[in-house]
Write a protein that binds this DNA or RNA. Structure first.
Lengths: 221, 221
DNA sequence: CGCCAATCCTGACAAATGTCCGGATCAGTC
DNA sequence: GACTGATCCGGACATTTGTCAGGATTGGCG
């Protein structure tokens, strides 16, 4: 069952989040969760507004109403905040990935891509932007974890494309296409300032029609 | 002559670089040019390695062998360095932009895109990465300048697509496609770590076949 | 050699930043 | 009300950062 192997692998890679420090100062778990949410929400906004490096702990404290000293009872350091934010927004489990959608053969390629983009752009907008912008600030081990997940996703995607379209499995163009489709995920978030007056659904429809045609053209050419 | 107007507009927008400070301490112009090149080269490497905010003036001085005090005889401040680097790498004049290539009707859409990507990926790799990563660090006026250039390019591109393909000029999908094709420029630089074993020319060929098909699919659909 | 303008650099300053000590405050229990 | 353990926070620390004044050095010229 190559398809199942695929999603198994993906699920495995998925559960590997960036490692969050555990801190044993405060003991009330629900308090910890609340404060961490405050902190991460504020940090997300600020990272998107000013970038990771330009955001200071003091900024985050001010916006989240957590004291500068107390914040270290909930997070280990600035990088730990970034890790938690990415785990929440980029590695979120509630978004179907494209290989998963492609498992259902009753959904056309075009619709699958549209559904993928729609979900991504609606709920992972911030995560995508952060992931692309903050890569330089990640520690090497985190970057590695990110790369492993990405590679697993890519492998599953080429497998599904291969299964559906019957290209030679080793055809490098499958990898290129997989990469490209995943890259399109970033199109909406990264360029929305340019076409702010065009309805999102129009963009999604246009891109997914185009992307499906792109895949077919490469397969048939 | 709408086509000519297009390139005129582009050329006009092009000549508007980010404004570089002029400093009147050192007088020997060729010395100034040399030092600035040292500084910008070192800064480029460092910005790509560690990001703009995480790169310190001291880092730049160390790598460029310019003294920490002297550097202010050649550049006004850290942001001025970023502006100069972007002017050199992102706004470089020696790369044909896509609308320009599309003026020649003997070149197919596919070949035009391939040529555009090939040039971009060969000589503008660093510029593209920097532009996408450093936007948050630009001052508002610089961001505005960047947006104006981008908008001019996009307008020219939809004009050319319109001329070639005969869609309604107001069709929003033209804008989406233009945006998308320009966005593809970033594909190579941003994802080359993933498929480092695939020859660039294969990637370019695959992407340009696909992109041309994408455009046609949208136009015909 | 001695002079002068141009260039370089030692050393410093103020501000900002990540981090956290140690005491203040609060909530629950007897 | 007194005690105790958990949480909060005022204020400080060592560093790092951008910036630059003012003296040291250099190179050409008379």
């Amino acid at each position: 069952m190559p398809a199942n192997n695929g999603t198994d692998r993906l699920r495995a890679a998925r559960s590997e989040l960036l490692e969050e420090a555990d801190i044993r100062v405060v003991q009330n778990q629900s308090l910890i969760d609340d404060r961490r949410k405050q902190i991460c929400d504020a940090a997300t906004e600020l990272f998107l507004e000013k970038g990771f490096a330009a955001t200071t702990i003091r900024d985050i404290c001010a916006r989240s109403n957590v004291n500068q000293a107390s914040i270290y009872d909930y997070i280990a350091n600035k990088n730990d905040i970034l890790r938690r934010v990415l785990n929440q927004l980029w590695f979120r489990e509630d978004v179907q990935m494209l290989p998963e959608i492609l498992l259902d053969d009753s959904v056309s390629l075009e619709d699958a891509i549209a559904s993928f983009l729609r979900q991504s752009w609606q709920v992972k907008r911030k995560g995508t932007l952060l992931a692309y912008r903050c890569i330089p600030h990640l520690l090497p081990e985190d970057r590695k974890a990110l790369r492993i997940r990405e590679a697993a996703l890519m492998k599953d995607l080429s497998d599904q494309l291969h299964r559906r379209l019957g290209l030679q499995a080793e055809d490098q163009r499958l990898d290129i296409l997989s990469n490209l489709v995943v890259f399109l995920q970033a199109f909406g978030p990264m360029r929305d300032w340019l076409h702010s007056d065009i309805p999102t659904e129009t963009v999604i429809r246009t891109i997914s029609v185009g992307a499906a045609a792109m895949v077919m053209a490469v397969v048939e050419g």
